[in-house]
Design a binder for these strands. Structure first.
Lengths: 348, 348
DNA sequence: TCTGATTTCGCAATCGTTTGCAGAAACCTG
DNA sequence: CAGGTTTCTGCAAACGATTGCGAAATCAGA
């Protein structure tokens, strides 16, 4: 392992002091260095193959040029695009991101926040899942620049970027309404997750706004955002709810579970029951029936969050523009169709 | 932003020297500290909420306790499980991982290796894609601990963990052969990617081993591992190759493209042409027809690579066990079926 | 030529930890 | 009790960079 070339080496080679070298190599400070000297030094630097040691610089400046990216689980197809969106703005600026998976466990999350602080990250982007986790709010109050994705943190002045969950659900409901559906059920997500709760609220609002029946039995809550829970919740609806002709699912995986149940029970989709999802995961257009869903702008959300964080790190007050709401789009595919005629209602 | 508590603070509070504090807090060195003193110090440390500054420690010890994880693209469904596998062993050991996406561009990759070195990573896990990229080999030769996933680097002594590509293709071909297929085509991946090349070679071997026709026209090469190229290559086969009854695709996305083409041309799958993929991506069981494919152990590969890297960082010679080959499994689903009778060959 | 302003550069401290070395104290051993 | 260990702790120098401050050099103007 060869000796890494440092400022000192360049200083020795050019016969100047290490501080002069440091200044000559810093574009911001190089005004205080004569042109000749600077050229001499930069030449020597590139000749020797100098690469600054960011740890050392970070120690001195208290700026590590790294940010922490906290997500529930990179394995969840929702997050990779977000991560890339973040990286696409951070990397060109010289920032590196250290990625951690919280699994939505508060204690794990708390530990990871500490880990990130130990490493001196300049800020944290937190793709939140839980509705309440005080850890991140505390970090923000302690002066750590923080931006959250998917969730607003009450009280603290933390910028956040979210999708327009309300509009998404409203689009789905309106779409079904337009197809003639009147009795619409909701497979809700976990209510301790922000998206689950927001979408359930949005569903109730949308139903009310259209003067549709708001029977609480038409809402079944999944404990997790996965296929099994989607199936369970859908079965619960089929078994206990009054007849309905459409299911608005709080996310695509729940919808996949619901579709499985319909198929298993021989209920044709969309002939008898239409289904919608949320998120527009990959490959949803390949399944049978292709899932009608709401597409969201993950990469853009990541990029915006990253830019907000950079601004915060740069000293901008968070107060200015706390909220960024990204538009969503309805993607109509095969899983939704016209409401079956009332003469042949689905057997219960 | 409050002052962060340092060793110096603890020293002041307990009235001892900072070096004593450092030793008392280091489990390895604490033998040289009396029990009473150590207790006093650890108590003060936790009372003050001390958290070591890893940057400072890293600067001194030349050990940053971070590793670089280089992957082509986290958006590719193949990699998230690998990343989690890596994290699952690294995080408990106190390592953080900084993640970078290379997009399989050599110059970008070279730059990112430098970025990682600047940050003083203790090692690099490189989920390779390109068959040749000298950058990572140079880094390894310069003394950086490196482990690669999916690729062997010739010459350099770099441990690598790969899937048993050969067995995977052999399984697919044998499965088709068992179903009666004799004329089997191959949608090959890009030959500048290691997996593409290895699988194409494996295909030829498997064909030869079964004494099946090894017509070069039965192999069509995709330029990228995506659906569009899979479709293009499949069309090329249908248009120019002699009749065949099965297609072994070098990866699932190519297979998806191939399935689209078959459907578009009205060629029923698997009635007239069977199709297999590779990787067992999520949701492949939900599409129509469900794709028969080869499942690989991504998370395990990541975990093993991480363990190997830790060993390297710990000073172990890479020579010992360079190669780890992970077993693969055939997953039979709906896209493969018995060979159509010869009396009704597919029209060309 | 001298003064004062300006540029250009070196000195040294500093960030928070780690660690070789040495000194002091305590403990044995003969 | 002298001499030799062993145990404990402090001192200070690193690690590689940044930066306030001051000194030297240059320059302009009188």
């Amino acid at each position: 392992m060869k000796h890494r070339v440092t400022l000192k080496d360049i200083a020795r080679h050019t016969g100047v002091h290490v501080s002069t070298v440091s200044r000559a190599l810093d574009p911001a400070k190089s005004t205080t260095i004569s042109d000749g000297m600077r050229k001499q030094i930069t030449d020597a630097a590139s000749a020797l193959g100098y690469r600054p040691n960011r740890l050392a610089a970070g120690l001195r400046t208290n700026r590590s040029m790294t940010v922490g990216v906290m997500i529930p689980d990179i394995t969840n197809a929702l997050f990779p695009p977000i991560v890339r969106g973040i990286e696409s703005v951070l990397e060109p600026l010289g920032y590196a991101s250290i990625l951690v998976n919280t699994d939505s466990e508060p204690e794990r999350e708390a530990r990871l926040v500490e880990v990130l602080r130990d490493r001196g990250v300049d800020g944290i982007i937190h793709a939140a899942a839980l509705r309440q986790d005080p850890t991140i709010a505390r970090a923000a109050e302690a002066g750590m620049p923080v931006v959250t994705l998917n969730r607003r943190i009450e009280g603290a002045e933390i910028p956040f970027v979210i999708n327009d969950e309300d509009a998404g659900i409203r689009l789905a409901v309106a779409h079904l309404h337009g197809l003639g559906h009147r009795r619409i059920a909701h497979v809700a997500g976990p209510q301790n997750l922000s998206t689950g709760q927001l979408r359930a609220e949005a569903f109730r609002r949308a139903i009310r706004a259209l003067d549709l029946p708001a029977d609480p039995r038409l809402i079944s809550e999944a404990q997790r955002f996965d296929e099994d829970e989607g199936a369970r919740a859908a079965e619960h609806l089929l078994d206990t709810a009054p007849p309905f002709t459409a299911m608005v699912c709080a996310n695509d995986r729940l919808a996949l579970g619901a579709l499985s149940v319909l198929r298993a029970r021989g209920v044709p989709c969309p002939a008898e029951v239409s289904v919608t999802g949320f998120n527009n995961m990959p490959f949803l257009d390949r399944i049978e029936p292709a899932l009608t869903t709401i597409s969201i702008r993950q990469a853009e959300a990541g990029a915006i969050a990253a830019r907000r964080l950079i601004a915060l790190i740069g000293g901008e007050a968070p107060g200015g523009m706390l909220e960024t709401v990204l538009p969503v789009e309805l993607v109509v595919r095969g899983s939704t169709g016209p409401c079956p005629t009332l003469e042949s209602p689905r057997d219960l």
